[in-house]
């Protein structure tokens, strides 16, 4: 049915920071450390993880807003990372981004109309008169009044600004949108509005999403597939209903159980997670999750787990699924 729109293979992005005095040592932050996944056309792919796990860097790397160190990004059969500058500009019309912070994502000195007309003119998608009409139509689509075009960003609320950010991403008619925590800076009531708007637009424009979030509830609502990231690596991927039904990786399991279910009668025992996310500068040996994992064995401290493709749809990186093991015996919910 759905064909693959975006394929990401073994993406790596390391940052080098110099620390220390008088002799500075170079430390390597492995922000994204060998990540692979696929996004199907017309579907939403959720990328979930705690703060600092590299999910935002990954989102920017696949748009080449930061250049990945290695790996490959294939968009609709085209190799993104080896594309030259002028072809890249054309390709950018097809892949867009929505930001988390609506207060930082709009130029304070530019009227909304001007900000939305500019991409159309730059890419030669419309002449001035057409562009104006297109902008009014876009504003209407994202639920803003036509007179918004004459106003400055500071005259809008966070939710309205996020709608403007969405409209800007839509100006060039993209097929894929990387949504980097698009609702986590908003009030819960506004979150729902923006999510419904995104879903509406997804249908009317046949959009695919890479949806970055730390909120499992939001991802569960919006996406069909997901990947769970921990310290720069993907620990589990699969279709959302199956992951929520039966998480394979202990981390996924704990995340699922930590995310509240709106049912007061359902009380249950938690597996809970200890401690903080370790530093990405000096990640734990072996499996990065082992210091916080209730099932950690000796092998987890020494050897980084291989990727186990459980079936066509699901995969997990955990020693509990090494050959001979049947997986952990999770408490029943």
């Amino acid at each position: 049915m759905a064909d693959t729109l975006l394929r990401i293979e073994n993406i790596k992005k390391f940052f080098h920071v110099k620390r220390g005095f008088p002799v500075a040592k170079t430390m390597t932050v492995r922000a994204v450390d060998g990540v692979s996944f696929e996004v199907k056309r017309g579907r939403s792919f959720g990328l979930v993880g705690e703060s600092g796990c590299g999910k935002s860097t990954l989102g920017r790397a696949l748009l080449r807003l930061v250049e990945p160190d290695s790996g490959s990004v294939t968009f609709d059969g085209q190799d993104v990372l080896s594309t030259n500058a002028s072809d890249m500009r054309a390709l950018r019309q097809r892949m867009q981004i929505i930001f988390q912070d609506p207060y930082s994502s709009l130029n304070p000195r530019k009227r909304i109309g001007a900000a939305l007309v500019e991409p159309l003119l730059v890419h030669g998608l419309a002449d001035k008169r057409q562009a104006h009409e297109r902008v009014l139509k876009l504003l209407d689509e994202v639920g803003l009044p036509p007179d918004a075009a004459n106003r400055f960003p500071h005259e809008f609320s966070g939710g309205q600004r996020q709608r403007i950010g969405i409209a800007r991403a839509l100006t060039v008619g993209p097929e894929l949108i990387v949504a980097d925590e698009p609702v986590s800076a908003l009030d819960v009531s506004i979150q729902a509005q923006i999510l419904l708007l995104l879903r509406e637009l997804q249908e009317s424009h046949n959009l695919s999403f890479v949806f970055i979030s730390h909120d499992l509830g939001v991802v569960r609502f919006f996406c069909q597939d997901m990947a769970v990231m921990y310290l720069g690596r993907i620990v589990e991927t699969g279709p959302i209903p199956r992951i929520f039904e039966e998480p394979l990786h202990p981390y996924t399991h704990i995340l699922r159980d930590a995310s509240p279910v709106p049912d007061p009668r359902q009380s249950r025992k938690f597996l809970h997670i200890e401690g903080e996310v370790p530093s990405a500068v000096n990640p734990p040996s072996g499996c990065h999750f082992h210091p916080r994992c209730p099932y950690a064995a000796d092998i987890c401290k020494k050897v980084s787990p291989d990727w186990h493709q459980v079936d066509a749809e699901r995969g997990v990186a955990c020693h509990l699924f090494d050959t001979g093991n049947t997986g952990p015996d999770y408490p029943k919910r």
Partner: peptide
């Protein structure tokens, strides 16, 4: 982020500097 948005929209560097940073 709005500068990153400019880059994502494929604006050239001179355009970003003149129309988005200068003001």
């Amino acid at each position: 982020d709005f500068i990153e948005a400019c880059r994502a929209l494929g604006y050239r560097d001179w355009r970003i500097m003149v129309f988005h940073i200068l003001p």
